[in-house]
């Protein structure tokens, strides 16, 4: 089989597309495949081919003098991938596209967090305990006004909720946390044992109000 581009060498790279009943295929020699950007059939991201409109990929390869797009290149608007992700946007500062973020899972610069904010929140939800920062804040930078601070609530026992732990157990739990905090593990182990003993004997069993 000869290469469909140079029509000289033996074709060793074969691309096939099936849409409904329509099958299209492209046979290239190694030289032309390399030139058109499909040198490594595995590296040529099979995923890209499957995701995108393959016709345009094949079209781009077939078009004389025009190689397949490097999907990493912040591309021309013609490419369907870019058009599709236009709503996801592209970072104006570092050029990171939404598609690239999705592919690598990495952001390009701090500005990207503003650009991809919406898409990011769903990713963050599955990844972290919350989607808002709780913790150290640089000096002189205030926490976002009005931002919910779920942990602050969790810390101070909400007044209305009946606590299942009798007061002495609560104190023990606090002591334990404190001992762990100052890395006094011997004390921590003793308190832990005390809590266990109390739970076992029933003195520390869940208090009535429920």
């Amino acid at each position: 089989m000869e290469c469909q581009v140079c029509k000289q060498r033996e074709a060793t790279v074969h691309l096939t597309q099936i849409v409904d009943d329509d099958t299209r295929s492209l046979d290239l020699c190694e030289g032309c495949a390399k030139q058109k950007g499909v040198s490594d059939p595995v590296g040529f991201a099979l995923g890209d081919l499957l995701q995108d409109d393959i016709t345009s990929v094949l079209g781009a390869i077939m078009a004389p003098g025009k190689g397949a797009k490097d999907p990493k290149e912040p591309g021309e608007p013609k490419e369907p991938r870019e058009a599709k992700d236009a709503k996801g946007g592209q970072c104006g500062r570092c050029g990171m596209s939404h598609a690239e973020f999705k592919k690598t899972g990495r952001l390009g610069c701090s500005e990207c967090y503003r650009v991809f904010g919406e898409a990011l929140d769903s990713v963050l939800k599955g990844m972290h305990k919350g989607v808002r920062h709780v913790g150290k804040v640089p000096a002189g930078k205030a926490q976002e006004p009005g931002a919910p601070e779920p942990v602050a609530e969790a810390k101070d026992q909400p007044a209305g909720v009946p606590t299942p732990i009798p007061p002495d157990m609560e104190q023990l739990a606090r002591d334990l946390a404190e001992a762990v905090g100052r890395e006094d593990f011997e004390a921590a182990a003793k308190i832990r044992d005390a809590i266990r003993a109390a739970k076992k004997s029933g003195t520390g069993a869940k208090g009535g109000a429920a």
Partner: peptide, 15 residues
């Protein structure tokens, strides 16, 4: 960022 905390290349380190 007040919302996301310290910004990192990978969102797994964010906050």
């Amino acid at each position: 960022s007040p919302r996301y905390g310290f910004l990192t290349a990978c969102p797994t380190n964010l906050g």
